[in-house]
Design a protein around this nucleic acid. Structure first.
Length: 885
RNA sequence: AGGCACGUAGCUCAGUGGGAGAGCACUACCUUGACACGGUAGGGGUCGGCGGUUCAAUCCCGCCCGUGCCUACCA
């Protein structure tokens, strides 16, 4: 066995080695036939086009921590991985490839294009899967799914047909968000609103039969080509005489009516609004109310169509410039104001979207949403942290029908066929060959595909084999938990809730844990366009996956965004290295140790042993508690401080004399404790630091019940009972050591210098405690002559410090000068004086004494007494020191 | 416009109705046989501002200022 660990931890080879080992051994695999209680998570499927970013890193690290923890606590864990087919994004990628070859998809035709996408996918899609593995993600990779897989596609058809049959899917011709570049409709959610600087153009529309103008304001002057009315508020006196009259639409010379509608805000602009029912959502509603004409002036690429008269064939923004210029030359441009407003952009390509009339497929979501709301209200699904519940309700109560059809090729083609003969629609699970209305075989399949989120919404059950009744579904549905960022709460979580309840008759997950967004150090959202992205894999290369994971875990406090700083990652890299070196120390001292031949049972444990074992128990307890409550940062902090500040700083140091001493029994007892605590600590840390813990665990001496630490049991608390009294005595010894070190440090006593110390104890209990730690005090405080007693004889020139019931006296002779000690005492006294003042004031407040709970009172009185006593001792010492000057 | 967060040490962030914490950075000393990615000691904050509730507020409530995010049809 190799116990010669290198001096510094080198993550690179270690990570690769263990990940391969786990995967080959099947440690990640979930067994649906297992009798163990289940724990399941479906991964939020990243886009097949995606590359790992910080959001993925955080999201998957948290899931992995949960999954590894649950495996270790005896659960059969299914973490279902996969990617989604990202319809628009993927099609864009492949279209770009084609463009580089001077082709476009229409030349290839639909089938060849789709084939080309599949080729792209198998060659360069899904890189993110390997990137997730580099983080240590313990998904059941054998089950990896893709939303375009055959099984998942079958689920999509099943759902479509059933929703259609239930009347929840329908077709309608209305305004939708149209991306003129992607040439497809988008759902409301897929439009991003960004405040942009623009203008408000004030146009003059001549009133027919008068010499008056009606001034209207618009942010999109080119739409005037499609105006079919001007609206004013019915109670606006300025215009009441014009209602019912006609204005002459400039440039196109069309007479359009002045109508009255409550929608108009009298205060805004001129109080008169041009109405373009075919190109504006509000105008659309007004158009319907007033039975106006809907004139579409754009084609699907955003180019003015034949309805635009002289502007026909112009691109929308060129047309805007031209129209403004023409209006101006005709004296019909009143003024141009600067104006900022939220412009809708395509979330995939950032092209400004156009409200566009077209016939699309919709899901009537209101009835589904009602059930999804109920499930959260009744806590069948719990959303954490709870403030997100409100956001969820808000969205669900105001939900609009979901436009699910996309005019692209890559995706699940809508299973609907139009009959050439009777014009009716046939919707079918199998490809239709005959019209279900007239029997005709002259059918054309709908060319549109479904929104990618439609298939994502089925993910929690489609990945488990639905619509088949599989063992996996029986065992693992509903899933235990969903871990995700709030940015897809509506896109995904809400829709999974609706679909899960509708088709599985049960919620898709019992808990939803919403985590923060990772931002850069300035708090900006990371984005390629801002150039502020930090590549997680670069971080992994530089600091190691474990250090990165620990950082994410430590930062993942509920309800707050994460501003990632590389300094902090460096700090946790040091932590991993610290663990590594503490382990090296242990291994060096465990070479002759056999865990099988040594047990804690029946050993007479030292105070130090009992202290570290009791601290370990409490760290384990807190870690479990925090993990169960998704308090990832608490887990990190508990384990960090136990590892570094208790195990390394104290126990490792305390153990040295016993390990290096002559007494074989003492040595073996200490080895047993050292082994027990380190081995347990590695298991405690494993969910966060999977790689380094496995590497160390594997070289520990002896055999353990499982082959890998992954499958080992998670520590829960006490390894063996410890005596509270012994632990308390150890704490006193530690306080004394700290007090001596404090004096040494303050008075600049060289660290190597061995000194004399007198410990004057107030009572025999303190004396017993101190005596029990005599050897520790000698070694850790570098003391060569230690006197312990009650009412000891005090050397004349001493430095005085107080540690609870123990007065720490350090003879000055030859060490330090009187002035320095005087200064130190004054500083120390100033601190104590603050305490005395604070508690004196507090306790002299009659109302406080009358109202505060007795335990608070008692505690504060104790604190005051202790402070006063300490002050008295220091004061006396100061007097004595001053007589020596 | 509405909603939701946030404002704590130089920086990044925890935290709690009862004397303010961590990491990094900083200062001093130290190559002590696991570790200089280290050790020991230390300095540093009227917990955004103003009011209120309370014996007690950084924490609860109100208002204000600042920052960020989400939702929304003001042309």
């Amino acid at each position: 066995m190799n116990t010669d660990l290198p001096k510094g931890y080198d993550p690179a080879q270690v990570e690769q080695k263990w990940f391969r080992c786990w995967e080959e051994r099947g440690d990640f695999h979930a067994d649906e036939k297992s009798p163990k209680p289940h724990y399941s998570i479906v991964i939020p499927p990243p886009n097949v086009t995606g590359v790992l970013h910080m959001g993925h890193a955080l999201n998957n690290t948290l899931q992995d921590i949960l999954c590894r923890w649950k495996r270790m606590t005896g659960h059969e864990v299914l973490w279902m991985p996969g990617t989604d087919h990202a319809g628009i994004a993927t099609q864009n990628v492949v279209e770009k490839q084609l463009a580089a070859e001077g082709k476009d998809r229409h030349e290839l035709g639909r089938e060849a294009f789709i084939e080309r996408v599949w080729t792209w996918r198998s060659e360069s899609g899904g890189q993110i899967i390997n990137q997730l593995k580099r983080l240590g993600a313990s998904c059941d990779w054998e089950r990896e799914r893709f939303t375009m897989d055959e099984g998942l596609s079958k689920a999509v058809r099943e759902v479509f047909v059933r929703l259609y049959d239930d009347g929840l899917i329908y077709r309608d011709n209305r305004l939708i968000n149209w991306c003129p570049r992607c040439h497809t409709a988008l759902s409301d959610l897929e439009v991003e609103h960004d405040d942009k600087k623009g203008n408000l153009w004030h146009l003059r529309y001549p009133v027919v039969g008068t010499d008056r103008y009606l001034v209207v304001a618009t942010t999109r002057p080119e739409t005037m080509l499609g105006d079919t009315a001007v609206a004013v508020h019915p109670e606006d006196e300025r215009y009441s005489d014009l209602i019912g009259k006609m204005v002459l639409l400039p440039l196109v010379n069309r007479e359009i009516p002045v109508i009255a509608d409550e929608y108009v805000d009298k205060e805004f602009g001129s109080g008169a609004v041009k109405i373009t029912p075919a190109h504006d959502f509000n105008d659309f509603e007004i158009g319907k109310r007033h039975d106006l004409e809907f004139i579409n002036v754009l084609d699907e690429s955003g180019i003015i169509n034949e309805n635009g008269g002289p502007y026909s064939g112009m691109e929308r923004y060129s047309a805007r410039v031209q129209i403004v210029a023409d209006l101006e030359s005709q004296g019909l441009l009143e003024k141009i104001d600067d104006y900022a407003n939220a412009v809708g952009e395509c979330y995939r390509c950032k092209t400004v979207i156009e409200p566009y009339m077209s016939k699309q497929w919709y899901v009537a979501v209101k009835p589904l949403a009602a059930e999804a709301i109920k499930a959260v209200e009744t806590k069948e699904t719990v959303i954490l942290p709870p403030q997100w519940e409100k956001t969820y309700y808000e969205w669900m109560y105001n939900i609009q029908d979901w436009c699910i059809s996309r005019q692209i090729w890559w995706g699940h083609r809508i299973p609907a066929w139009f009959c050439d003969d009777c014009g009716e629609i046939t919707v079918s699970r199998e490809d239709a060959t005959a019209c279900s209305h007239c029997g005709s075989s002259n059918l054309q399949q709908e060319t549109d595909v479904l929104d990618t989120w439609f298939s994502s919404a089925l993910w929690p059950f489609s990945t488990m084999g639905w619509p088949e009744e599989t063992e996996a579904l029986k065992k693992f549905y509903p899933t235990s938990c969903l871990v995700t960022g709030f940015d897809i709460l509506f896109f995904w979580v809400a829709r999974m809730m609706m679909m899960g309840i509708k088709f599985m008759d049960d919620v898709p997950f019992k808990e939803v844990y919403i985590h923060a967004l990772v931002r850069d150090a300035q708090g900006q959202k990371m984005s390629k366009s801002k150039g502020n992205v930090i590549d997680p894999l670069t971080i992994v290369d530089e600091y190691g996956a474990d250090a990165f994971r620990f950082t994410l875990c430590a930062f993942a406090a509920m309800g707050r965004d994460i501003k990632l700083s590389t300094e902090r990652i460096g700090g946790y890299r040091n932590f991993v290295n610290k663990l590594w070196n503490a382990s090296r120390f242990a291994l060096m001292n465990l070479e002759d140790f056999d865990p099988a031949a040594n047990s804690l049972d029946g050993l007479e444990l030292s105070h130090a042993d009992q202290w570290i074992l009791s601290r370990f128990a409490s760290a384990a307890e807190e870690a479990n508690k925090a993990l169960g409550a998704y308090k990832f940062n608490d887990v990190a902090s508990v384990l960090y401080s136990f590892t570094w500040h208790e195990f390394c700083d104290w126990y490792v140091e305390l153990s040295k004399e016993d390990l290096y001493g002559e007494d074989a029994a003492v040595r073996s007892r200490t080895q047993t404790v050292l082994y027990t605590v380190l081995e347990g600590l590695l298991r405690l840390l494993h969910p966060i630091l999977p790689f380094v813990t496995e590497e160390i665990w594997q070289v520990l001496p002896g055999e353990r019940p499982t082959i890998t630490i992954m499958q080992a049991e998670y520590p829960v608390g006490d390894v063996i009972p410890t005596s509270a009294a012994a632990v308390a005595e150890m704490e006193i010894v530690m306080d004394v050591i700290r007090a001596i070190r404090n004096v040494r440090g303050e008075l600049d006593v060289p660290p190597g210098k061995r000194i004399q110390v007198v410990l004057d104890c107030k009572n025999s209990a303190a004396q017993v405690a101190v005596e029990s730690g005599r050897s520790h005090i000698l070694s850790l405080a570098r003391v060569e002559n230690l006197q312990v007693g009650i009412d000891c004889e005090r050397p004349k020139q001493v430095s005085t410090q107080v540690a609870g019931d123990v007065e720490v006296l350090i003879p000055l002779a030859g060490l330090i000068n009187v002035e320095e000690e005087e200064a130190r005492l004054l500083k120390e006294m100033a601190k104590v004086q603050k305490d005395v003042d604070f508690f004196t004031k507090k306790l002299s407040n009659e109302k406080f004494v009358a109202n505060a709970p007795p335990q608070v009172l008692e505690k504060d009185r104790g604190k005051l007494a202790a402070a006063e006593e300490k002050k008295a001792i220091l004061e006396l010492s100061l007097l004595k020191i001053r007589t020596l000057k």
